[in-house]
Design a protein around this nucleic acid. Structure first.
Lengths: 141, 141
DNA sequence: TATAAACCTGACTAATTTAGTCAAGTATAT
DNA sequence: ATATACTTGACTAAATTAGTCAGGTTTATA
């Protein structure tokens, strides 16, 4: 089980954005330089974040991105959802429902994966961008 | 983030094994048939489980595998560890330690991934094979 | 109004990982 | 003896990931 770097980058970039979020939008070029993430890759990521209304774009010179909600209202779960980073534990859900009704011997562990998914998603739902910035700030004191 | 099928199969196979664990060892052939997992693949998996002393092998006719500990003492974390299924969240640990000392701007989210790993591993450490069998049994009542 | 900064999009690709298969054994109960 | 079942290592096809690349469009400002 691993987290993909698309998800990690999305979170890193948003923390960076939130930190530098003032009146002016933050350009991807700046985030790219500060975080060491390829500009082209960031563009892919922010395209998805924009579609999910997590950020807003400002075009033209001096343009960039701004948060579209308060940092407190942006949860990890929203970010991961936007970039298609999701917890996949069990196959049988999509496949033949006949094979897996929760009682078949094929799914001895079905409930376990459900429980695991819930456990992880619970973590993502509680954690907001604001929490991350706060943690980051407190560590520096 | 996804769980690989090697990890899933390992857990499924061990639940199966634990259920049919009597005086006689359980052959991989039987598990293969009951759980629909390729025999060759199961062999790879059980080779690893044996090396970590989770199961014991019995060779020859009427051979197979038996649990090497009580189901209560086998935690998910042991199983996943044996088959190299692990939670990987952040890269910077292995790489240049210079780049990531917890204060560099590259690791704005370092603590987050640590926290996530702990959260998930905590789940794995609590859950034993016995829990899984019990859940499975109770659901059938 | 020319221009450069910065967003926007889709197609492409190399590297890695996964999920097995295959082949050639060895050990042992009957 | 021999069939059953464990044991090991090498190999491979498919999928996924982590980007790159090329070609746009928009707009502030000089």
């Amino acid at each position: 089980m691993k987290l993909t770097s698309k998800g990690r980058y999305a979170v890193m970039a948003l923390v960076d954005l939130a930190k530098f979020n003032s009146i002016n939008p933050v350009s991807l070029r700046d985030i790219s330089l500060r975080q060491g993430i390829s500009l082209d890759y960031l563009e892919q990521i922010f395209s998805k974040l924009r579609k999910k209304e997590i950020v807003q774009s400002v075009r033209g010179i001096q343009g960039g991105y701004v948060l579209n909600k308060k940092a407190k209202e942006i949860k990890l779960t929203n970010i991961f959802d936007a970039v298609d980073e999701k917890v996949k534990t069990v196959q049988c859900k999509k496949e033949s429902k006949k094979g897996c009704n929760g009682r078949s011997s094929k799914c001895l562990t079905h409930d376990l994966w459900d429980e695991l998914e819930n456990h992880i998603n619970n973590f993502f739902e509680k954690k907001s961008l604001e929490d991350l910035i706060k943690d980051n700030f407190e560590r520096r004191i």
